[in-house]
Structure formats: structure tokens, C-alpha cells
Simulated scan of single mutants.
Amino acid sequence: MVIVYFLPWAMIVSNIGAGHLPLFWLCWVVMGCGIVGIGTCIMHDANHGAYSANRKVNVFLGYILELIGGYSVNWKIQHNLLHHTYTNIDGLDEDIDSIVLLRLSPRQQWYWFHRYQHLYAWFFYMCMTLFWMTAKDYLQVIRFGRRNLLVKQKVSLSKAILRITWYKMFYYGYVLVLPLLFSGQPWYFVLAGFVIMHFTAGLTLACIFQPSHIMPHASFPEPAQEGGKRHIKESWAIHELATSTNFAPRSRWLTWCIGGLNFQIEHHLFTNICHIHYRKLSPIVKKTAADFGLPYHEKRTFWGALVDHARMLKLLGKNQLA
């Protein structure tokens, strides 16, 4: 996956195929696929502490997110802490707290323009990593700092902002400045290639993660209130079964490409286990859920999951779910 990302970058910077424009565009598209592969197959497991039994290896590989423009502290808070603890709970799970143009939960405010979100959502999905690499990390770390969520990560807000700035400077230095200087292409082609890379990565990642939770059969529970704090009402494991969906469980190729995230249920239940074991865990979890009369949501194909997600966007847009 690292080669998939850096080989086309090296070809661009080395001015290989400068006179062959389709190859230039293809390199950026392949780099977008490399971002997806690095994120799902390496960074995701590493920052869950599941890539290796050696903690130092996980910490080292977790920093690969900084190499592709992100900030691992933010990711751990949003994903490990908020998403995995409060899956599909509006106001707590930041994965469903998107821009106002997207309504990803029946508990969110409905506006008339949401009627068309099943058509335009895909464009905003494409912009996901582009927004992440520019403004999101700064906005998010400030928000996390105000909520005292940086404390457990042992970093102050000022230090986090400084680190993000250094990481972004390094990222834009090699991914934009070097191609601008050495690719032999006009600056506007390089900028267009950069956008194409992120459109590829953003749309692909959204098509992996959104059908895992934003589905017609998924639960979107209200949190319980106790002592001024919000928490999930039922058993955490049952909550994860009700809010997560597997897809294409028989596709070994897809499982390899996206780091086993098509086995979203197993991932949510066993975050500290490497994704290469999800396939064997799946039938055990499925049988146990059936034994106890619990839900186990699964779509046979990736395409079927995407279609169901699109249908969910349409239902949410029509305000037909409550």
C-alpha cells in the first residue's frame, strides 16, 4: 500500500512520462487509492493497537497518518473514543456529525434541501479528505481542546496546533511543492492532480465507511441521561451489533484492499484484534448473535451495501425515519 502511494508520486516528481498526460493523471488517481490502502490497512489497525503485538510497532506505524496529511491524535479521539463508544448516537459520534447539508441520522434537524442529498452527498464525500487535509484538523483539535479530550492524549492545545502545522508543511511540501517544481507540468495541472487524488480517496473511503453504519436497518438510539452525562442505554456490545453492518464477507480481494473493514461488526467488537482474523471471527459472532436473538446485519455484496446506503440517504432526506 505504501508503494501504491509513493511509486506514482516518485514518477510525477521524477518527470517520468511528462509528455504523456494520461499517465500523469493516472498517477494521481493511484495515489488516491494508496491513501485509502494506507489508511485502512496500516494506520487503522496500528492506531487501534492491533497491527502488531508490539506496542512500539503500533505507535510507529500509527504515525503514517501524519505522512499522508492527517493528525493521529485527532483520529484517535474521533474514531477510537467517540465513534467506537457512541456509534450512531447524534451529538456524540462525530462520524455522523457532518455539515448541515448532510443529514446522516433521523435525530438530526431536517431541512428542505435534504430531499436531494442522495444525489449531491457523493460530491461532499469526495471532498472529505481534502477538507481533512486543509481545515478539519485545526477545527477539530480546537474543539477537542475545549472539551478536555486532549488530556488523555498527553498533549496541550498549543502543542497540538504546532505539531499539526509542522506536519501539514511537510505534507504539502512533498505532495505539492515538489511536483510543482519537478513534474514538468503546469501548476494548474499539478493542483488539479492533487484535487483528483483527494476526490478519489474521499469518495472511496466514504463508500467503505458509510454503508457500515448509515443504513436503513441500523439503529440510531438516543443516549441515556444520568448525572448530567450522556451514555448508551444498553449493553455496549449489543449496541455495536445494532448499529454496524458487514458487507461482501466472501470477497477476499475486497477484504485485503480495505483492511477487513467490510467486517465492521467484528471490528467494532474486537478493536484490539488485527483485521486478518475477522473472517474467522465472523461466523462465531454471527452464530452467537442468533443464539441470543440479537441482530447481525450483513449485505452479501459491496454494491448491495452501497445501494442500501443511497436508499438510507433518500429516506433521511424525505424525513421518513424517526
Rank of each mutant, 00 (worst) to 15 (best):
I164F: 04
N47C: 14
L21S: 12
H297I: 10
A135Q: 13
D137A: 04
R279D: 08
T129P: 09
A290W: 04
I16Y: 15
Y86F: 15
A218P: 02
H118F: 14
H20K: 07
G69H: 03
V177S: 06
V177G: 08
A237F: 11
H297A: 06
P223W: 01
I99M: 12
L162W: 09
K168A: 11
I258E: 13
A121R: 06
H118D: 12
G17T: 00
W75P: 09
Y167I: 15
G259L: 01
L315Q: 15
R143H: 14
T288M: 10
L315R: 15
T301H: 02
G184I: 08
A18K: 11
P216M: 07
T85H: 12
H83M: 05
S183T: 07
H44L: 01
F209R: 05
W25D: 02
A46R: 00
S251R: 01
L67A: 15
C33K: 03
A224Q: 03
I12G: 02
L313S: 09
Y125V: 02
Y71P: 01
Y116L: 15
L180Y: 06
K56I: 00
R147M: 14
L191W: 10
W28H: 06
F302N: 02
A10C: 11
S52Y: 05
W9Q: 01
K56E: 08
H267Y: 07
V175S: 14
L7V: 15
Q210N: 12
H79P: 10
G91M: 03
G69Q: 03
L119E: 05
E66Y: 09
W253F: 14
V175N: 04
K318R: 15
V29W: 01
S183M: 10
G69P: 02
V57G: 00
A50T: 10
V175R: 01
H217V: 12
S212F: 01
I232P: 00
L203Y: 12
S72T: 10
W132C: 08
Y296D: 05
L261E: 07
I68E: 00
V141M: 11
R55G: 04
H44Q: 10
I3P: 04
V175E: 05
V151C: 03
N47G: 08
M43Y: 11
P295G: 04
I38D: 02
F144N: 04
G69R: 04
K280M: 07
F124G: 09
I96R: 03
N319G: 10
I64P: 00
W122K: 07
V13A: 13
G39H: 05
K286Y: 05
V285N: 01
A135M: 14
V30P: 08
G34H: 01
I232T: 03
L81G: 00
I258V: 14
F6H: 04
V100H: 07
T245Q: 10
W122I: 12
P106V: 02
T271D: 10
N272I: 09
L254I: 01
I232N: 00
W236F: 03
K76H: 04
N246P: 00
M126S: 15
D45K: 02
G37M: 06
W75N: 07
P249E: 08
L241V: 06
W236H: 15
F60Y: 08
V30Q: 00
F199T: 05
E234H: 07
Y138N: 06
F131H: 10
